[in-house]
Amino acid sequence: MTGEGIPDEMVDARVEKIRKDAEDGGYILNPDPAFVRALVAGICINEQRYGYAACPCRLASGNRGEDLDIICPCDYRDSDLNDYGACYCALYVSAGVAAGTIQAPCVPERRPARQERKKMSEGSAHVSRKESMPVWRCRVCGYLCARENPPLVCPICKASQDRFVRFM
């Protein structure tokens, strides 16, 4: 049982689900199983506490609408994987970090601070500008995605990031 009464089996099942989803999508979990388990226990606790699987390393508000960006996997995961080789919590890591050739870095918080988020939710123009993203095409399977950078691994055919070309 975790400190907040989540049964061990529930955490184990969640770890397996997250691991399977990660592998299916070409993502890699942190190579330290105890670290992964503790984070996943945190996700289970948050789900019980708030009703949604908020990021264990961020303080959730309890209002799902305000926290959509930090429901795990969060909006910032792939950008942090791209720039630092790990998500903010380091639940997800790059191949280099997983292999131990690169040390998991201390990822700075990319989520805007509380005051900025408040301003952003008041002025929706700001938000729509953020949503115009380049489109990337996987040259191997044709998968298209609109995001800052192509994924480290194509979620469809598992081709590496350098096999993507800018499409739009």
Binding site: G3, F35, A38, L39, A41, G42, I43, I45, N46, P56, C57, R58, L59, C89, A90, L91, C106
Partner: peptide
């Protein structure tokens, strides 16, 4: 700290 956070631990 947060009780659920790996880096806090």
């Amino acid at each position: 700290a947060l009780s659920t956070c790996g880096w806090c631990a």
